[in-house]
């Protein structure tokens, strides 16, 4: 991230300026200021001071040409769809949720505004993986690993179905659907409606995950799709459990939702990254090396370079 486009080298700055000039020429005067501000902020967020002209060109190509906003309903709908940028979400999610080469724990969100936790940086800090374990995250991950990862949201859907099949009759006729900050329920729905919502919230993501795992799409796209499916499925499955805990306030249950989701998504992405690392090791060093540890030298060896801990990774 840079504070201003002035931080760029002249050649890279020229590419950014050309893009902004072209955008300004396309926009009506009243839209020019705010749109150019937004574009400049987006460029600064995604660029580094040493980003070259090719990197800037790649980024502005990703942003695409700027189209003036119209006011008809058709134009508004097109703007909303364009703003959400649903195409390529999987790939963007994968690069934001798992970017071990970037030591920042929080990265700009893949979808919408705000920040996402970079689980790749967390794994590096915990010494679980090298920052450059894969040339491109998930690009070398084998098909079998994607199929195994898709079993996580599938298992969550199966567990939710089993939960309602086994415990359904013992559950009250109405279940909580909304809780206060203190974890006390303040809205309820009927048991069939709660069950239908929870089943849909786990089965549909599982379907997306299985389809992604069996597809021939690029690895980062498949990893991101499975990660999103795991996030939605794990939160829904946890809510199904939370509903069945009764009406007593449970302040820990809300934060637990975040922990459950982060743990599930982190496990899936870590597993996929380790599989990609193993595939690269196998390619370069033979199959025996595929299980090479990330940890440091065994006792007795002299370490000649800084240990791989605390974000100071080793290649």
């Amino acid at each position: 991230m840079i504070r201003s486009l002035d931080d760029l080298q002249p050649a890279a700055r020229a590419v950014a300026d050309d893009y902004l000039r072209e955008a300004a020429a396309r926009l009506p005067v009243r839209q020019r200021g705010p749109v150019l501000d937004d574009l400049t902020t987006a460029l600064c967020t995604r660029l580094e001071a040493d980003s070259g002209p090719a990197v800037v060109a790649e980024l502005v190509a990703e942003f695409g040409p700027v189209v003036p906003a119209g006011n008809s309903w058709g134009e508004r709908l097109r703007r909303i769809a364009g703003g959400l940028r649903l195409t390529g979400v999987g790939e963007r999610v994968a690069s934001t949720w798992w970017n071990p080469a970037d030591e920042r724990l929080l990265l700009p969100r893949a979808l919408g505004t705000g920040w996402d936790l970079n689980l790749g940086a967390v794994a590096v800090r915990l010494g679980l993986i090298e920052p450059d374990a894969e040339a491109e995250p998930f690009a070398a991950t084998p098909d079998g690993a994607f199929r195994a990862a898709a079993l996580v949201p599938t298992a969550l859907a199966a567990a939710t179905a089993l939960h309602y099949a086994v415990r359904g009759r013992a559950l009250p006729a109405r279940l909580p659907t909304h809780w206060t900050v203190a974890g006390a329920p303040d809205r309820w729905v009927s048991l069939p409606r709660a069950a239908a919502t929870d089943l849909a919230g786990t089965v549909v993501p599982a379907g997306f995950a299985l389809a992604a795992a069996r597809s021939s799409r690029p690895g980062p796209d498949r990893a991101g799709t499975i990660a999103v499916a795991t996030a939605v499925g794990s939160v829904t499955a946890w809510v199904a459990v939370w509903r069945s805990l009764g009406d007593r306030p449970r302040p820990w249950a809300g934060p637990a939702t975040v922990v459950v989701m982060t743990g599930a998504v982190g496990t899936v992405l870590y597993g996929l990254a380790r599989a990609g690392r193993a595939a690269e090791l196998s390619r370069d060093l033979g199959s025996d090396a595929a299980t090479a540890p990330v940890t440091e030298s065994p006792p007795g060896f002299i370490e000649v370079h800084p240990p791989f801990t605390g974000g100071r990774g080793r290649g």
């Binding site: 580094e48 040493d50 980003s51 070259g52 090719a54 990197v55 790649e58 071990p100 080469a101 970037d102 030591e103 920052p131 450059d132 040339a135 491109e136 690269e280 090791l281 390619r283 370069d284 060093l285 090396a289 090479a292 540890p293 990330v294 940890t295 440091e296 030298s297 065994p298 060896f301 002299i302 370490e303 000649v304 990774g313 290649g315």
Partner: peptide, 25 residues
């Protein structure tokens, strides 16, 4: 590492795993 990743994406460097005499590859 981000710099190496950018250079690799730009096709200016390539990477290969190699065995290390003092630890993991």
């Amino acid at each position: 590492y981000p710099l190496l990743a950018r250079l690799a994406r730009a096709g200016l460097v390539t990477s290969t795993w190699r065995e290390s005499p003092v630890g993991p590859p």
